[in-house]
Design a protein around this nucleic acid. Structure first.
Lengths: 204, 204
DNA sequence: TCAGGCATGTAATCAGTTACATGATTAA
DNA sequence: TTAATCATGTAACTGATTACATGCCTGA
């Protein structure tokens, strides 16, 4: 274990001595999404599903109140727009102070490892024996799941970044999406190798 | 009560149409850890830091109340033991019904992708330009962080699984730990390649 | 006309973190 | 003797999910 000799100032959660928690990251995610272009709360909510669900999640019930707080703080502003003849929507955009606040966060050191809650890894962890009859089915289930997810990511990659101009215009987005594709590809390879390894043991 | 349409189905969070959330996984983690051998609450707490922090986290303030609930449900039992002459500790072990409850969960389909909250990926996502002066430093910071983490995992691997007998005795643990080492190795390779790619662009 | 999506919010609950609180044991 | 660790708990708060609630718009 990597020990931090701590003088009990900040005693947050750790894994292997590494810091984990972050406070109110949601506000920065919203500011970041608005830094790309103006959006409604509904569009922000959709972005959490489609664009950044890979590494952050939030529901609309969390987003709308946060929008109010950010506006109170002067980091964003909204103007009303009409969808059709009656349905009002609030289109939010970043203010200058909001952009500064966002950039301060991006520039700050990120000393926390990503937080992962992986239920499959957990189940695997508790299986003692390579001959456990549940293992092949569990692995196949994950192969199917992650194949589907990889297909989704690949489609997004093709939609967004087919040429160098697109990659240059949103370099960070391109980096994280291409990394996600790589990561899922590598994970699928491991799942398949592990499943194959079990089969070989069965036939010994 | 005023009738709303669309009553109560279950509309949880998704990424790309995939289900995410799980309810009270903590209880199963505790049961799983106790299925390995009996432990105190303190030892369970330590296990979240040292053994399974890679894919699940919990503090002692969450663990102690959950132990009470699991005991109320009859899934675990404790007996008191003395550490020294006065200090009492509660050593918990799994009951038969607890083991059944745990195994039901392990056998259940895992249709949810792992939940990840990755602040670094988020920051990267919001960087538009490959020439952003913050990028090299950010990448180097992550390289240092994940190198340290990989070293920690490698030490654990060496401590726990040096021979085939150890790997066979806790096969699932071996699988997830060896996978974690692979994943971190692959991630570090990507970080370094990406950082190197930036340098080349700088010198063009 | 009707289903699915667009659009915005709040309420209730659950999960998770941080801090408070106390005291014993061990080894330097 | 004193710092680190063992040991157990609760309180206060923040974060996140699920459900409740309402109403408009578009296209089949």
């Amino acid at each position: 274990m990597i020990s931090g000799k701590g003088q009990a100032k900040f005693c947050g959660p750790t894994i292997g001595g590494r810091a984990l928690a972050q406070r109110n990251v949601l506000q920065y995610v919203i500011l970041g999404l608005l830094s790309q272009h103006e959006r409604t709360g509904y569009e922000l909510s959709a972005a959490f599903t489609n664009e950044i669900g890979e590494f952050w999640q939030a529901q609309h019930s969390q987003i709308y109140p946060q929008l109010g707080k950010l506006e109170d703080q002067g980091f964003i502003q909204h103007e009303k727009a009409l969808a059709g003849k009656k349905l009002e929507k609030k289109v939010y955009r970043l203010t200058d102070s909001g952009r500064t606040y966002l950039n301060d966060w991006v520039g700050d050191a990120t000393t926390a490892l990503p937080v992962t809650k992986d239920e499959f890894a957990l189940k695997l962890f508790f299986i003692k024996d390579a001959s456990d009859p549940r293992l092949p089915g569990m692995l196949q289930e994950q192969i199917d799941l992650h194949q589907e997810w990889l297909a989704h990511l690949t489609v997004r990659m093709g939609d967004l970044f087919t040429n160098a101009t697109q990659r240059a215009a949103n370099f960070g987005h391109y980096l994280v999406l291409s990394r996600a594709v790589e990561r899922e590809t590598d994970y699928l390879r491991w799942l398949q190798e592990t499943a194959a390894g079990l089969s070989r043991k069965d036939h010994q």
